Each structure stands twice: as C-alpha cells, then as structure tokens.
Amino acid sequence: MVFFTGLPASGKSFLLRQQISISVSLGRRVHIMRWDTGLAAFQTEDLLARYPDVSDGTHPLIRKAAGLWGRRALARWLAENTDPTDLIVGEVPIIGNRFSEFIQTQPDQIEPALASEETTFMYPVPTKGLRANLEAIRRSTFANPRHPDEARDAPPSTMELAWRQTCAKAAELGLVSEVDIHFPYEEAIYVRFFEHLLQHRNVVRIAVDTIFSDAGSAHDLNANVLELCASSDEVKYAIAEVETTFTAEAAAREVENWYRV
C-alpha cells in the first residue's frame, strides 16, 4: 500500500497519478482510495440535512464515519486482493481528520499492515517559492476546474486553514517555537509536524522543486484503475456506529484532536 499525504496544494494528486502510471506499466493491478471520493458517498441529502457542514468543512460526525469506513475498507481490500501484483494507492490528507485514522494506532485488523514496511506513507515538501505557485494554481483550478475532480479539491479557504492548523498544532506540541498562525509557509515547520504525525508509519519525504506545466490536470489518471467507494449500506452502518459511540459534540472533540497520535 502506498499513501500520499500532506498539505493541500503540495503535489499529492500529481504524485499519486505518477505512481499509478508507473505501477500499471510494471504490470501491477492498481486500486485507488481518495478522501474526496470516499467522503462523497457520505454526502447524501439526508446526512447533510442531519449533519450540515461546519466552518472548517464537513461535519465532524461524518468525518469520523468516513474514517471508520476507510480503515475497514482497507482491511477488506487486503483480505480480497492477495496476488503479489495487487497494489492500493491512496490520497490521505490527514489534516482536520481527513482519513487521519490511517496514521493512528488502533487495535484492529488493518493496524499491522498499516504499520508494516510493506506500506509507505509519502509526503511531498515543496520549496517556499514553489508552494506559492501551487497555491496560485489551486485558486485558479478551483475557480475554473479543468477536470470534474478539481471541483472537489480543498478550496483556497481550506488550503489556508490547513497551514494555520499546521503552525498552531506544531507549536502546541512543542515541535517549533511559538509562531503566529498566519506565519508564511516554511518547510521546516511542515516537516517537523508531519514527521510527528507519521511517527508510527513507514514514511518517505519527497522534496518538490519543479512544476510540470504541460502535465495537464493531476486528476487525469489515464489508467484503468478501480476506486474504493462506500456502498449505501456501508455508509449507513458507519454512521450508525459513530452515532452510537459519539454525540455530535463528542465527535467534534475527537476531530479537534486529530493530530494526537
């Protein structure tokens, strides 16, 4: 299993696309799992009426349910796909409890695989100058999507909030000196925070200093891959289990502590 994580507008989708292309060319049978697509199954009219979006995005209870489904979906995928050529490639934002369950140690069936050397979490670290360019590109593609999936990318407001959270949580954990939450992007803060988040996983940091201007949309996968999505029954069961475990207020507190691993 290979998962790409990191800040919005850091290059995750592009690297995921390249990983898929390389893997397919080498004869691997690839499945993918992405937060945006996984979450979409939970954004039904009924659930959004009961649990409307909040100031920083999706309602906490829905985020918790999507994370619960995600870990179980991975366990099921491993059980059903045992050929050595099988590979799952995922996009796991983590920040704000967006599949952050994947980096938390939990006593379940999938934990040994998530913690093993056969699973890699990769996070791209753009240079300061490149990050500014990526932010500008995100604002442009979000306003004028070139691909349907770009409309589901983290909006500029979420992109900015993710960086403020990175600064605030890194300082709270004592990983960096106290900083203003509006501090401009710094690679060192980002790296220290994600090394903390990924301390229980096999991790690879990827330095990014180049934009491929002719690469097209990062969401153009150009490969025949299957994507893991929650069925309506799986959504119903995950929501019911989270509702049994948490009140809406308790789910919000859990989501607030997404960075504690």
Results as ranks from 00 to 15, higher is better:
A40P: 10
R253V: 07
I137E: 07
V191I: 12
F212L: 15
V225S: 11
E135K: 06
T82L: 05
N202K: 11
P84C: 05
E254L: 05
F14D: 03
L161E: 01
V92S: 09
G90D: 05
R28Q: 08
F194P: 03
T141S: 06
S232Q: 15
S23D: 10
I189Q: 01
R164E: 15
D53I: 03
I239S: 01
D233E: 13
D53E: 11
F102A: 02
E118W: 07
F42L: 08
I32G: 04
T5K: 00
F121T: 09
P155M: 15
R29N: 13
A248P: 10
T141E: 05
A40S: 15
G6D: 01
I189N: 00
V30G: 01
Y259L: 03
P93M: 07
V24Q: 05
A223W: 11
S55E: 15
Y185S: 02
R72I: 06
V89S: 03
V242G: 00
D220F: 09
D86T: 11
P8H: 02
S21W: 04
L61K: 13
R34H: 10
G6P: 03
A73E: 12
E249V: 13
R34F: 06
T105F: 07
I22F: 04
M122L: 15
T119V: 14
S177G: 11
D108Q: 11
G57I: 05
V30P: 01
T44Q: 04
S140L: 14
F142Y: 14
L114P: 02
W77M: 13
P145G: 02
